[in-house]
Amino acid sequence: MAKSIAGPEIERLIQLLAKLPGLGPRSARRAALHLVKKREPILRPLTAAMADALEKVGECSVCGNIDTSDPCTICRDPARDQSVVVVVEDVSDLWALERAKALNAAYHVLGGVLSPLEGIGPEDLTIRQLVERVSKGEVKELVIAVNATVEGQTTAHYLMDQLEGLDVRATRLAHGVPVGGELDYLDEGTLSAAMRSRTAL
């Protein structure tokens, strides 16, 4: 086993950084070194921001978004169409749709997708809370905006089964050619979905 060349505090920082998505051990070492070298301009404000986030940021009890208030800013927005709920896998998907300003609607974060191989079942997601939300009768349309993966589609089908008998219209995101995409570079699945979802000009 390689001997550590840094003190235990830096090693702990590296190990914690390595747990972040997109950071492996090597990237974590570089990030830790950068933080320690830039103590005043970066590390100290980052520490304060993280302490603030720990104390003030939480999960919205209505939709599952991350915010400093509960219900979150989106759920409390009177200008939003609360009768349309966009169902997403994760908060990052919600934020992506918000950046795109795609739809002025409400949201519901599932917290992942069904994945028997990873031991993720319906009880690990917020499917029951979504069904309860729809059962109140105020939601008229659910936009199922899960990723176009096998797990995403399995989750979408399971959702549809759970919503059977409820008075709600379910729609899904169109799949196909991205804006600016070239046909030659697209995979067969995307091309097939685009062809099936073709619309009139």
Rank of each mutant, 00 (worst) to 15 (best):
C63N: 07
A49H: 06
T155N: 00
R26Q: 15
D77N: 13
G121T: 08
H157C: 12
G119D: 03
V84H: 00
L23W: 06
V62S: 08
P71S: 14
I144C: 00
D124N: 15
Y107W: 07
T73M: 11
I74P: 00
T73A: 14
L16G: 10
T155M: 05
R128Q: 09
K38M: 11
L103F: 12
E132I: 06
D70E: 12
D67F: 09
L23M: 12
C72F: 04
A48R: 15
N147H: 14
I74S: 07
L46P: 00
L94I: 00
Q153C: 11
L13R: 01
A102M: 10
V113R: 03
A102Y: 08
Q129L: 12
P21T: 05
L46S: 03
L97E: 00
S27Q: 14
P71Q: 10
A145D: 05
L94G: 01
G152V: 02
T73K: 14
R30N: 06
D81E: 11
P25R: 10
K38T: 06
R30S: 11
L13G: 02
H34P: 00
S135V: 12
A32T: 06
I120S: 03
L130H: 03
G112Q: 05
E59L: 13
D93E: 11
A51D: 11
L16H: 14
E138K: 11
R76W: 11
P41I: 03
L46A: 06
C75I: 09
L130W: 00
Y107I: 07
